[in-house]
Write a protein that binds this DNA or RNA. Structure first.
Lengths: 335, 335
DNA sequence: CTGTTAGCGCTTTCAG
DNA sequence: CTGAAAGCGCTAACAG
C-alpha cells in the first residue's frame, strides 16, 4: 500500500492506473474475471485494496441497463403478515446480488400509481407487489416497462405478468366449511376492509349461503381493534358461537376481550384467525388459523425475477402456494 | 397526444424534441421550473404526457452526485421493535423525495461490513444504521465516504457521525430501580444476547449491585422463547418474584407460561418488558414495559440526513429521545 | 488475453 | 430565459 487511503473516492480509472492496466481490463478483472489472466487479476485486486475502491453501480447500470435493484411495494411494513415475505425477498435477492427498494403504498390506490412512478424512475430490474395492481393506468405502465413483475399474496385471471399467492376466496370458504363441519351455526366475522380480507369474507359468506353478523374495521387490523370488534359482534348477536377474524393479531384481541367478558374459549366461543403469526401457536389458548407460507411466496417471487433477468426459463409463472387450516385449542371443543 | 404511447422508454431527448425545445430546457422545466417560462413548462409537460416519459434518476445522479437514496441497515426486519422506525424513516424520506434501500445485516458483525460495501456501491446520499457500527474497518469506511451517517437506537461517546437513540444502560438501571422501589428482591432476567439487550442487562445488574438468575437466549427473542425462558428461570429460583424481559414479545411468552404453570400475574410474579409493542397495553394482564418512541427515532434520523444533504444546519446531532416506564397490570400488586 | 472507441441519460458548467 | 459543450463512471462492441 503506497499511502494511507486517499480521501476522495477512487474510481476504476485510479485502480487501473495503480495496477498499470487499462480501464477496461480493470473492469473485467472485477466483473468478468474469466476473461483476464490470473496475474492481472491479482494486480487489480491489490490496486483495489490500495485505493479503497468501491464500485459505482449507478454508473455501470447506466451503460449495462441493469440496476441490480428490485422494487418491492407493500401496503405498509407495519403489518406483520408480510414480514416473512419481505424478509425472504430481501435475502433471496441479496444472495443473487440484487437489492430491494421498499415502498409503502398505504391502503390507498391513488398512492399506488404515484409510488410506482417513483420506483420506475430508479429503473429497477423487476417489481414485486403485495396484492394485485389495481389501477388500469398502473397496470399498463408496468407492462410497457418490459421488466418482470410479480404480484403476490393473491391470484387472478388477469395478472400483469407473473403471480404467486393464494386464493383468498378459497380460504374464506374453507373456514366457513370448517365451522359448518363442526356444527356451529351462529357465526360472526371480524374483518379488515382491504381487498384480500374482503375476498376471504366473500368466500366465507358464499360457502355459508347466507349473511352473518360482521364487524368491518379499516385495515390494518390490530389486537386493540379486535377487542372492540368482539363488543360489536356481541351486540349484533349475544349468543354468537364462532368467529372468523381476518388476522391473527385481530383474533388475539377478540380472545382477550372474550376472556375479559367472562366468555371461555373454546367452550363458549370458538375463534379462527388468518396468517399463522409467530405467536399464534404459543398463546393460551393457542389459535386456530389459516397458515400461508409467506416466506415461500417471497422466495418464489424473488426467484422468478432473478430467473427472468438472467434469461432462464420460468418453471411456473402462476403459482398457488396454497394454505392449510391449523386446528388448535381455540376451536378444540370436546365432542 | 400524437400516437399511442411508444413501446420503448422515452428519454429526455424525446421529450425535448416533442416539445420543440433543447434538451437542457426540458431538463430545467422538470427539475428547476423557476428558470423557465410558463409557456415552455406547459409544452414540456405535454410532451412528457405524450411520450410517457419517466425520468432516469440513475443517469441524473451520476452527474449530480445525488442518488436520492438512503441506505438503512437493520439487524432483521422480522423483529417488530424496529418497525415503527423503519416506517417513519421510509415515510419521512419519501416526503422529501428520497427512497430507502433496506439491508438486513443479521445479528452477525462480519456481515455488517460486507453489506455496508454493497450499500455504498449504490452511492446513497446518507446511511442510517440500527444500533452502533461496531467494526472499526466499517467505521473508517463510513467516515471516508463523507456522507451523513446516523446511528440509531443507541448512544455512544464515539459516534461515527450523528446519533439518535437511548441509553440502554439507563433503561436497565431504571427497571432495576423500579423493582427495588416496590420491594421485590428475588429478581430474574430473561434477555436476548444482542448488544443493546446486553447493555440493558448490565445497567440492571449495576443498579442492583449483585448478580441475578438470568436466562440468555440468542437474538431475536420471541414469545416461544419466553415460555422456555421462564422454565429456565424457575429452575434457578423457584420463588422468583419479578422478571425483566428484554422485549415485550418475550415477556408475553413468560406471562403465558406462568399462567400455564398456575402462577398468577401479578400476584405471584410480576413482569416487565421492553419496547411497548402494539399489543402490550391490550393483552390481559396488560404489560408493564419501557416505552421508546421508535417512530420519533426514525423521523429524526431521516430529518438529520435530509437537512445535511440540503446544506441546512443540524439543530442537534446527538439526540437522546429518552424512555419511560409504563406501569400496567403485570406489576400492579395491591399495597 | 488486452486495448480503443463510443456512448448510457442526464446535469453541470459556461455563453449568449 | 435559453442553448451548446463537456463529462459523471462505467461497460458493450469491436478490434488487435
Amino acid at each position: 500500500m503506497s499511502s494511507p487511503l486517499p480521501l476522495k473516492n477512487a474510481t476504476l480509472h485510479d485502480v487501473a492506473r495503480e495496477a498499470g492496466v487499462s480501464l477496461i481490463t480493470a473492469s473485467r478483472a472485477l466483473s468478468n474475471p474469466a476473461l483476464v489472466s490470473d496475474k492481472t487479476i491479482a494486480r487489480v485486486q491489490n490496486a483495489v485494496a490500495a485505493t479503497g475502491y468501491i464500485p459505482n453501480l449507478l454508473a455501470g447500470g447506466l451503460k449495462s441497463r441493469r440496476s441490480l435493484t428490485v422494487a418491492g411495494l407493500v401496503p405498509t411494513i407495519s403489518v406483520p403478515q408480510f414480514l416473512p415475505t419481505v424478509r425472504a425477498l430481501t435475502e433471496t435477492l441479496d444472495a443473487a446480488g440484487y437489492q430491494l427498494i421498499l415502498g409503502q403504498s398505504g391502503y390507498d390506490h391513488s398512492r399506488e400509481e404515484k409510488l410506482l412512478n417513483t420506483m420506475l424512475s430508479r429503473r429497477p430490474d423487476g417489481i414485486v407487489v403485495t396484492g394485485l395492481v389495481h389501477s388500469p393506468a398502473a397496470r399498463e405502465q408496468l407492462r410497457r416497462q418490459g421488466i418482470p413483475v410479480v404480484e403476490t399474496w393473491d391470484l387472478s385471471d388477469r395478472p400483469v405478468d407473473m403471480m404467486v399467492g393464494i386464493s383468498h376466496v378459497k380460504v374464506g370458504g374453507a373456514i366457513a366449511g370448517f365451522f359448518l363441519g363442526r356444527g356451529w351455526q351462529r357465526m360472526g366475522v371480524a374483518t379488515g376492509d382491504d381487498h384480500r380480507a374482503m375476498m376471504r369474507y366473500e368466500g366465507f359468506v358464499a360457502t355459508l349461503g347466507r349473511d352473518v353478523p360482521t364487524a368491518f374495521v379499516p385495515a390494518p387490523t390490530s389486537l386493540e381493534r379486535g377487542r372492540r370488534a368482539l363488543g360489536e359482534l356481541l351486540e349484533k348477536d349475544p349468543h354468537i358461537e364462532a368467529i372468523y377474524c381476518s388476522s391473527d393479531g385481530f383474533a388475539h384481541g377478540v380472545m382477550i376481550e372474550a376472556r375479559a367478558r367472562g366468555l371461555r374459549i373454546p367452550q363458549d366461543l370458538v375463534v379462527c384467525g388468518f396468517g399463522d403469526a409467530d405467536f399464534s401457536a404459543h398463546i393460551d389458548p393457542s389459535l386456530t388459523t389459516a397458515h400461508v407460507n409467506g416466506a415461500e411466496i417471497g422466495r418464489l417471487a424473488a426467484q422468478m425475477i432473478i430467473d427472468r433477468c438472467q434469461g432462464r426459463p420460468i418453471a411456473q409463472s402462476h403459482v398457488d402456494v396454497g394454505f392449510r387450516i391449523i386446528e388448535r385449542q381455540s376451536t378444540a371443543v370436546a365432542a
